[in-house]
Design a protein around this nucleic acid. Sequence first.
DNA 1: TCGAAAATGTTGAATGTTCAAGAATTGGGA
DNA 2: TCCCAATTCTTGAACATTCAACATTTTCGA
Lengths: 147, 147
Amino acid sequence: MAKSPHPNSPLTEHLAYLLAQANREINRQLESRLSTEGVPVEQWRILKVLSDGEGHSMGDLADAVLLNHPTLTKMTDRMVSDSLVYRRQDAHDRRKVLMFISDRGKALCKRLNSLAASQEAHILENYGDKATGELKRLLENLIDAAS
Amino acid sequence: MAKSPHPNSPLTEHLAYLLAQANREINRQLESRLSTEGVPVEQWRILKVLSDGEGHSMGDLADAVLLNHPTLTKMTDRMVSDSLVYRRQDAHDRRKVLMFISDRGKALCKRLNSLAASQEAHILENYGDKATGELKRLLENLIDAAS
DNA sequence: TCGAAAATGTTGAATGTTCAAGAATTGGGA
DNA sequence: TCCCAATTCTTGAACATTCAACATTTTCGA
């Protein structure tokens, strides 16, 4: 029997702490799966959003993938270098830059999706179908209530 | 009526994403409260763990506050500069360094606790007592199942 | 007892993120 | 129309985090 990695501390009573802890753990697991392809979680998110084939502005993309604008700009630079995505100027509003996914990006995204799916399956197995569904529901409500 | 900041995206189906989103939002709120005292969330966590007056090794502390060792070392350096905590060598195992909270740290921690409590109260109000309790329970189970 | 391996914490270089400012474009009121 | 404020994105400097290597101390088997 392994000892609990986080014995009772005064922190465990706080929702903020439990969220941080759960997020850290799940994110670690996902990261470790995606590392097969050498891709950070954020890049997978970007690819997934762009997978609809539409152009997405940097601002919308930043909101969607939970990154600040400058961070997204620099991460996008790397992905452009890797030929996963490309930029086009928006014809209707030339302040905007529209991001598109490339064929290479699509292929990578497909592989990443299946790695991520296997993680979700693993969670479902360990944690239970019902609890997972309930947790998702509660998180969605919290996000709505908090923002 | 404000528009939803995160319209339906292919990401919202993933537990990992919902956790990241909720964590980000709640953490932002907490951060904004604690900024009254100019203290990052991690420092509050450190102070809170040390509040029992016992000495805690860097390793234990790092696990408890969800920081990597080098990050904790450097954050601790800052807190020592601010006279919030201090280091002592462990007499029984001289590889270890024990961290202690100072009187100044205790006073600050008290103020931070009440700022954090007011955030929790705010969440309870918006989100509901029952849902909050249920969410905490599910998160604890997830953490146990995942680690 | 001795020595190799493990545990603990720190450091410096590489890397990544954030803040503040800037460039370009658009929108809207005087 | 014209100009000023707001929007969108990028950039460079300051700052923080991470990785790998190191120094110290302990543990434990030969």
